[in-house]
């Protein structure tokens, strides 16, 4: 994870505690020390296994993103009713003045 270059085929960089912590931060996921230890070992083994895709001779092969060849599926540009606001807000952890109430989004100095 410390390098930005594409890894060599067949070479699997190990996932250490620091890497896991960094990835978890990117994914907005707090992780405990115990989880860092456990995940580092488990994900290292998983990464070794999934890195086998690099063995495939697939240089010129087009990637498949989706099994169904559909593109630009659009509905008619007609306004349709949305879910009622109060029904949606009823499922929110916090609501105020007909809106979702969220924690502070800017730091003190911003």
């Amino acid at each position: 994870m410390s390098t930005e270059s594409t890894p060599d085929r067949g070479a699997t960089p190990a996932l250490g505690r620091q890497d896991i912590a960094h990835l978890a931060r990117l994914a907005r996921l707090a992780v405990t020390d115990e989880e860092l230890d456990r995940f580092a070992g488990q994900l290292g083994a998983v990464l070794d296994a999934v890195a086998q895709v690099q063995r495939a001779d697939a240089g010129d092969v087009a990637p498949t993103t989706h099994a169904v060849p559909l593109t630009n599926v659009l509905r008619p540009d007609v306004a349709t009713p949305s879910l009622p606001r109060d029904v949606v807000l009823a499922g929110a952890p916090a609501a105020e003045d007909d809106r979702f109430r969220v924690p502070r989004i800017l730091g003190e100095e911003e």
Binding site: S5, P7, R9, L23, A24, A27, L43, Q54, V61, P63
Partner: peptide, 24 residues
């Protein structure tokens, strides 16, 4: 965490991109 890794800059082609080719 694994998915975030596979989609990271620098690793995308080797992991996610290659997996999509294998899918083909």
């Amino acid at each position: 965490i694994l998915g975030t890794y596979a989609l990271s800059a620098g690793y995308y082609d080797a992991y996610y991109g290659q997996a999509q080719k294998v899918r083909t």
